[in-house]
Write a protein that binds this DNA or RNA. Structure first.
Length: 503
RNA sequence: GGCGACGUCGCCAAGUGGCAAGGCAGAGGCCUGCAAAGCCUUUAUCCCCGGUUCGAAUCCGGGCGUCGCCUCCA
């Protein structure tokens, strides 16, 4: 069974065959560090984090390179606005980017080169392009000649004449063709600059990715990723530069993610309709954000809304439920509810099959162009079966004999989620976060005089069970109300009362 | 204007030729002192019109609508 990926270059799904067996070389365009990244930027980085994790889980040795573009017009503009050096802007937002990625649970790249530390290699590529007749110098600027590269337009599916007829750019008379783009820009006073054969200046956009990917991975490498708004002109120009300079194929598989939208419109900094990743993460934990995004295929547009995030939170709780129930059942030694051995055997067979099916389906879905939405359906299917086994079937069994099977089911739920980077908090309680008022409550209802949160809750649970067994509903309900006021969730399940906190 | 993508249950969303996943929300039932959770049942001729095919949500043509790119953008 092979992994299939949708290649923008061919506009079809293709069998994924890396250049070296069992090894994958991938490059994803990183940020231009002039501001905090927004949640739309984060979606793309998350997409490729998933792809990387999945390929690694499937046994590939993945080398993942992501650049930081730390010299650019936007950084210079921002620096001028704030009256600080451009390097300071770049350093500030490079650090912010790294911490935001960590907060979302995105793995560090294998290597993360900086544009400003690759200048000599970029100059080298410009020289190669000039020597090959693919670039020309005008007043200290260097432009790439799109007409010199016959394949120009093949990635984005356009042709040069169509582009020109619809061009809205002002024509720079110094260019041989309106679509020619800058490889090297001469420095104006006060701008960052590096010496070059054409005078002091800085590299143009596109160049850093061509140079760094070749330097770190060699050509052709396997996967080049980014969001769909980078297809043209960024990736088209990268491809043209690299193939014109080297004469060899640049990339085997071009993968592009869909855009995050707000009110059916692209989220973007220029439109001002964005939410910063760091602000979203203050309200919604990383696993919720990840689950939200993975419920839609990575190539489709995705509407951002807090309603959707709230729904993802509910869905997350659905997954966490049986895992918590298992932890609690292990402690409380839930009794068997189905005494019939034969019936129990049917349940065991059914859950065993569900565990196998979930894994098989997860792999099938993910192999098919990283279909996380389908993969999650596989997980939810097993969640249902595990719930049924616990609450409608034999549970952990009279003597805990079903525990190994339930542990396997729990592991079969957690493993795929781990591949997707969705951490499930299965512990029923987070004692350290208990409000201290619970101590007073325990004293009032259970005569508890200690200071241990877990003991206090346990005392309350026992006191409430006593009240319920005495059919003293007034006391039982009032205990539940007051616990709920403190943020606890009180559920009377067939195996006893579950008190949890911190959902 | 040019190029491209998309239009599937109340909402979100998988599915690219063979009986329409999943999540959220709703209804009914089971369980239950109540509540919560859970389980079961329940709602789709897949934007419209033609065509190809034994058979189409899936392929082709036309229409309508939405979005993206063509200018910095993840």
């Amino acid at each position: 069974m092979a992994i299939r990926v949708y290649n923008t270059l061919t506009r079809t799904k293709e069998a994924f065959v890396p250049r070296e067996p069992d090894k994958v070389a991938m490059y994803v365009c990183g940020p231009t560090v002039y501001n905090h990244i927004h949640i739309g930027n984060a979606r793309t980085f998350l997409t490729f984090d998933i792809i990387r994790r999945y390929l690694a889980w499937r046994g590939f040795d993945v080398t993942f390179v992501q650049n930081i573009t730390d010299v650019d017009d936007k950084i210079i503009k921002r620096a001028a606005e704030e009256g600080v050096p451009a390097t300071e802007v770049a350093e500030t937002y490079t650090a912010a980017f790294r911490s935001a990625m960590e907060a979302l649970g995105i793995g560090r790249p294998s290597r993360q080169p900086l544009a400003t530390q690759t200048i000599p290699q970029m100059i080298g590529m410009v020289e190669r392009l000039i020597a090959g007749g693919h670039a020309y110098v005008v007043d200290g600027d260097v432009y790439f000649s799109v007409r010199s590269f016959p394949g120009y337009g093949k990635l984005s599916g356009r042709d040069i004449d169509d582009l020109e007829s619809g061009a809205r750019v002002e024509v720079d008379e110094r260019k041989q063709d309106p679509l020619d783009f800058a490889l090297w820009k001469s420095a104006k006073p006060g701008e960052p600059r590096w010496p070059s054969p054409w005078g002091d200046g800085r590299p143009g956009w596109h160049l850093e990715c061509s140079v760094m990917s070749e330097e770190e991975l060699g050509l052709p490498f396997d996967i080049h990723g980014g969001a769909s708004d980078l297809i043209f002109p960024h990736h088209e120009n990268e491809l043209a530069q690299s193939e014109a300079a080297t004469g060899v194929r640049f990339v085997k598989y071009w993968l592009h993610g869909g855009l995050l939208q707000v009110n059916a419109e692209k989220m973007s900094k220029s439109l001002g309709n964005f939410m910063l990743l760091k602000d979203v993460l203050e309200v919604y934990p990383a696993p919720i954000v990840r689950l939200f995004m993975m419920q839609t295929h990575y190539r489709s547009p995705l509407e951002f809304s807090t309603d959707r995030l709230d729904e993802a939170r509910t869905a997350y709780e659905r997954i966490a439920g049986p895992l918590r129930d298992l932890e609690i059942a292990k402690r409380s030694h839930a009794r068997e509810r189905v005494g019939d051995e034969a019936a129990s055997g049917v349940w065991v067979t059914r859950l065993t099959k569900a565990i196998e099916d979930a894994k098989t389906r997860f792999i099938e879905e993910m192999d098919d162009d990283f279909n996380t939405a389908g993969a999650l359906a596989a997980v939810f299917g097993l969640v249902r079966e595990m719930n049924a086994f616990i609450w409608e079937g034999p549970g952990i069994g009279a003597h805990g004999e079903n525990l190994p099977l339930l542990e396997r089911a729990a592991a079969a739920i957690k493993e795929p989620l781990d591949v997707l980077g969705i951490e499930i908090e299965a512990r029923p309680v987070r004692v350290s976060e208990y409000p201290t008022e619970v101590m007073q409550l325990a004293q009032d209802y259970a005569g508890y005089t200690g200071t241990d949160g877990a003991e206090a809750v346990d005392a309350l649970r026992k006191a409430r069970d006593v009240a319920r067994s005495e059919r003293n509903w007034a006391v039982a309900d009032s205990m539940r109300d007051r616990l709920q006021d403190l943020g606890f969730i009180v559920e009377d399940k067939p195996d006893g009362t579950h008190i949890t906190y911190g959902r």
